[in-house]
C-alpha cells in the first residue's frame, strides 16, 4: 500500500511537471523591466553597415538614437520595436508563447549606450557570452575639422566634418538640427550627425528615419558587472574571435558518457569599432 502511494506521488509529480513544462508557453511571461532615465521627443534610426575584414562580409544592423532632455540612448532598433509593442499592450498580460513570437519577429538585443548630457558622461551596457557588463566614461570632446562640402542625407542638408577618434579616421555629415549628438559615441558637432563612416568604410552609420514620438527610454534592469572600457573591449574581441574558449567549466557541453564535447573553433561576425 505504502509503495503504491509513493508510486502514485511520483507519477503525479512527473505528470504535473510535464504538464507545467508543456504549459510553460501559455504561462504569463516574466519580462525584465526597464530603468527609465528620460523621455524622448526625437528619434533617429540609423543603418549601421559593418564589414568583417576576416570573413570578408558586410552586414547591416539597425540602431536607434533616442534623444531626451537630459539623456540620450543609442541602441538596437529591434529592442525599441519590442518595447513599443509591449507598451502598446499596456497592462495586458502576455504569454511566453506570445513573447517568443514578438522576440523572434524583432530579434532584440539589449546592449546600448546612455549619455548623460548634464554630467557629460556615458555608460555602455554590453554583453559578452552570457554575462552583462557596464562601464562608464566621460563623453569625449571630439575635435572636428569642419569642411565646406555638403550633401543631402535623410532629407536634410548636411555638412562635412572629419576627425580621428579611437584609432579610426572618421568622416561625419551633420545637419542643422540643433542637437550635438549622433550615432554610437559621436557628437560635439553643431548639429545632429546623420552620417558618419570611417575612412576604410568598415563602419558606416547612415540615418534613414527621423521621427517624433514621445517615448520613455532607459536600460534593462539586469545584473551588470562593472568594468572598464579597455577590459570590456579586450574580452569582447576575444569572445567574438574565439567563442569556443568560453564553453568551460559548467558551461562545457558533454557527451553522453560525461566526457567534454569538443567545440569547433568559430569566428563570429565582428569588427571592433574602437581600435585603441
Amino acid at each position: 500500500m505504502r509503495k503504491l502511494v509513493i508510486i502514485a506521488v511520483i507519477f503525479t509529480t512527473i505528470s504535473s511537471y510535464a504538464q507545467n513544462w508543456g504549459n510553460f508557453g501559455k504561462q504569463q511571461a516574466s519580462i525584465t523591466p526597464n530603468v527609465i532615465v528620460d523621455n524622448s521627443e526625437l528619434q533617429c534610426l540609423y543603418q549601421h553597415t559593418v564589414y568583417d575584414t576576416i570573413l570578408a562580409e558586410h552586414k547591416d544592423f539597425y540602431e536607434i538614437l533616442e534623444i531626451g532632455k537630459y539623456y540620450s540612448k543609442y541602441g538596437n532598433y529591434g529592442s525599441y520595436q519590442l518595447d513599443s509593442a509591449l507598451n502598446e499592450l499596456g497592462d495586458t498580460p502576455i504569454t511566453n508563447d506570445d513573447f517568443k513570437i514578438l522576440a523572434n519577429k524583432y530579434d532584440p538585443s539589449w546592449e546600448c549606450i546612455i549619455k548623460n548630457i548634464q554630467t557629460e558622461s556615458l555608460k555602455v551596457y554590453g554583453k559578452i557570452f552570457t554575462d552583462r557588463y557596464v562601464y562608464e566614461e566621460e563623453i569625449e570632446n571630439i575635435k572636428w575639422d569642419l569642411h565646406k562640402e555638403h550633401q543631402i542625407i535623410c532629407g536634410y542638408e548636411c555638412y562635412k566634418a572629419t576627425t580621428t577618434f579611437r584609432g579610426r579616421e572618421w568622416i561625419a555629415w551633420y545637419s542643422d538640427i540643433p542637437l550635438s549628438n549622433g550615432p554610437w559615441k559621436f557628437g560635439n558637432l553643431p548639429g545632429l550627425i546623420l552620417k558618419v563612416e570611417d575612412s576604410k568604410q568598415e563602419h558606416v552609420f547612415t540615418a534613414i528615419m527621423i521621427k517624433r514620438d514621445q517615448t520613455d527610454f532607459g536600460y534593462k534592469k539586469f545584473q551588470y558587472f562593472k568594468t572598464t572600457r579597455q577590459k570590456y573591449n579586450e574580452s569582447l574581441i576575444e569572445y567574438m574571435n574565439e567563442s569556443h574558449k568560453f564553453f568551460t567549466g559548467d558551461l562545457q557541453p558533454r557527451n553522453v558518457d560525461g566526457s567534454p564535447l569538443k567545440i569547433q573553433k568559430r569566428k563570429r561576425f565582428f569588427n571592433s569599432i574602437e581600435l585603441e
Binding site: 548630457i117 548634464q118 554630467t119 557629460e120 569642419l146 565646406k148 555638412y159 540643433p178 542637437l179 550635438s180 549628438n181 560635439n188 558637432l189 553643431p190 548639429g191
Partner: peptide
C-alpha cells in the same frame, strides 16, 4: 539651456567655429 549650438559665421556666411553649451 544645455546642448545649445552656438555657431560663428564670417562676413561671407561661412562657418568659422562653434561651441556647445554645457550643463
Amino acid at each position: 539651456i544645455m546642448g545649445a549650438s552656438i555657431k560663428v559665421y564670417d562676413a561671407q556666411q561661412a562657418l568659422m567655429a562653434y561651441a556647445i553649451s554645457n550643463a
